[in-house]
Design a protein around this nucleic acid. Structure first.
Lengths: 256, 256
DNA sequence: CCGTATTTGTTCGTATGTATT
DNA sequence: CAATACATACGAACAAATACG
C-alpha cells in the first residue's frame, strides 16, 4: 500500500484540527467511534492517534478521552545580558524579572545543595582537578505554578572556602549568585559561552515536567560556562527546558 | 501491572546498549528471537523497540533487522559574530569556514530564489507593508554530503531595485550576503536577534533530512532578524537543523 | 534475473487491566 | 457499583523490503 490506513486517518484528523473544526480543549470521538467512522480496527485508530500524540496535537487520558491540546504560550527565555550592563547576565535572577514583564507569575524552589567530586567533563568546564570538590545547586523553576525548567549550577568549592558561604546554603540567592560572587569575592563576570542541545528527558525529568511518556517531548539543554575577568571559569550551569513551552532568545549587537 | 512488559524489555535492551554489550552498528536479535528471549508476543517486543527507536538508540530496516544507532558527532553551529569583527556575523558564510575547521566537508546548494508577497508576520519582521514584495532565498546545506540544515532568508524587494541585483540571482553569494549588501548598498549589519524554538518536521523536511517517520526527531528552528545601523531590518532568516546532529553555540562577552 | 527465506511493517480480532465518570 | 474510555498484551495474517543461492 502506498500510504497507510493509520496515516490517512491521522492526516484527516490533523486537517480537522488545523481547520478549526476541532478546537483546543474539545474531545475527539472515542476510539470506538473513530473505528466506525474510518472502518478500521481499534489498533489502527490508535496508531493514528499515536501520531497526533507525538506531534502534541492531542493528549489522551485513560478513562476520559482524547482531547485537542490546549494552546500554550511559550515562555521567552532571554539569554543575552541586560542592556548596557555588560556581560554580567545572571540567567537565574534575570528569569524572575523577565517573567514578570511577560505577565507571568514565576517562582523558584529553594536549591538542593550538594558537594560532589568533579567528573572528568566537569573538571574541564570549571578548570579544576578531576575529583576536586564542587558545589552543585539544583533548583526547580515554575511559571504560573507549572513546572518550567530545571537548573543545576556548579561552582569550585574554593569559592566557599574563600568566603562565599551562601553558596552552600540551601536558600535561594535572591539578588543572583553572579552579583553575590562579585560582592563577596570581587569576581566579575566577563562573559559566557552557551551550548544548546536537544535530547529526550530522563525519568526524573519526565516526572517533574509531567510529560506523558507516550509523547515525544524533548528537552532543550542549555549549558552555560561563565568566565571571570581573569579568564577563569566562574560557574557552569545546565538548564533544561521542555521544548514545547519555551523559546530561547539572543540579542547580539545593536537591536532596536 | 505496576510496570509494563514492553517497558521492562525496552529498559533491558537499553541497559545492554549502554553497557556496551551491544555496540553501535551491531544488529539486535530479530523480533522473533526477542519474542522467545522475553517470552512476549511479537507486538509487545515491537512496542519495546518503538521506545528505543523514539530515543534514537536503534534503527530498523525492513528485511534486514534492527541495529544500534551509529554515533554521530554533532556539528557545532557557532552563532556569535566572529571575534573582533563586530556584530556583522553572516551565519551563512560563516558556516562553510567553521565547518572546515571542525574537519568536516561542507557544501551548499544553489539557492531557490522566489519573489513573494509578505505575510503578516513577515511584514512585521522586515518592517515592510503586508503584501509588499520580498525576496526569499532558500538553500540546502550539507556536511560530508549529508543533509544538515535548511535555510531561507528574506529581504525587502527594495534592496534589489536599489542595486543589489545578485539577491535575485539563483547563485550562492560566496562572500556572504551581509558583506554584499554592505558593498552594494552601504548597509552595515549592527546586530541581530535570534529566536530558537523546537518543533516536529513537516513532510518536506522529513524527506530532505531523511528522518525516519517512526523516530521522534525534532528540528531546531533558528529565526534571526538582522538589523542595519539605521535600526531597520536587514534580513530575516529561518534556519532549521535536525536536533540530533547539531549543537548551537553562543559566546557573549569575553570568553577565553 | 528469479525464486525463496528472512525480517520488519501494517492491519485485524480479541481479551483483560486501569482510570474516570 | 456499573458504564465508559484508554492501555496493555496476545495471536494471526499478509505485505514489503532485503539477502542469498
Amino acid at each position: 500500500m502506498a500510504t497507510f490506513k493509520w496515516r490517512t486517518i491521522a492526516d484527516d484528523l490533523i486537517k480537522k484540527i488545523e481547520a478549526g473544526e476541532l478546537t483546543p480543549g474539545t474531545q475527539l470521538p472515542t476510539e470506538l467511534e473513530l473505528q466506525d467512522e474510518y472502518h478500521a480496527s481499534r489498533n489502527t485508530v490508535r496508531d493514528a492517534l499515536k501520531w497526533l500524540i507525538q506531534r502534541q496535537l492531542v493528549v489522551t487520558h485513560a478513562g476520559r478521552g482524547t482531547f485537542v491540546t490546549r494552546d500554550i504560550t511559550p515562555y521567552k527565555v532571554e539569554l543575552s545580558p541586560p542592556r548596557g550592563v555588560g556581560p554580567g547576565g545572571d540567567e537565574g535572577s534575570a528569569y524572575v524579572a523577565a517573567a514578570k514583564i511577560q505577565g507571568r507569575r514565576p517562582s523558584v524552589s529553594d536549591p538542593r545543595v550538594e558537594i560532589r567530586k568533579a567528573s572528568a567533563s566537569m573538571a574541564e568546564w570549571l578548570h579544576v582537578e578531576e575529583g576536586a570538590r564542587v558545589v552543585s545547586r539544583h533548583q526547580q523553576r515554575f511559571i504560573d505554578d507549572e513546572p518550567w525548567s530545571l537548573q543545576t549550577s556548579f561552582y569550585p568549592m574554593d569559592f566557599v572556602t574563600r568566603g562565599a558561604d551562601r553558596l552552600v546554603d540551601a536558600v535561594d540567592v535572591e539578588e543572583g549568585v553572579v552579583k553575590y560572587l562579585e560582592q563577596e569575592l570581587g569576581l566579575v563576570q566577563a562573559g559566557y559561552q552557551d551550548q544548546i542541545t536537544v535530547r529526550p528527558p530522563d525519568r526524573d525529568e519526565s516526572l517533574f515536567f509531567d510529560l506523558p511518556e507516550t509523547a515525544a517531548v524533548t528537552l532543550i539543554e542549555l549549558s552555560r560556562t561563565a568566565y571571570a575577568t581573569s579568564g577563569e571559569p566562574l560557574r557552569f550551569t545546565v538548564t533544561v527546558y521542555p521544548a514545547d513551552r519555551n523559546m530561547l532568545n539572543y540579542k547580539i549587537g545593536e537591536v532596536p
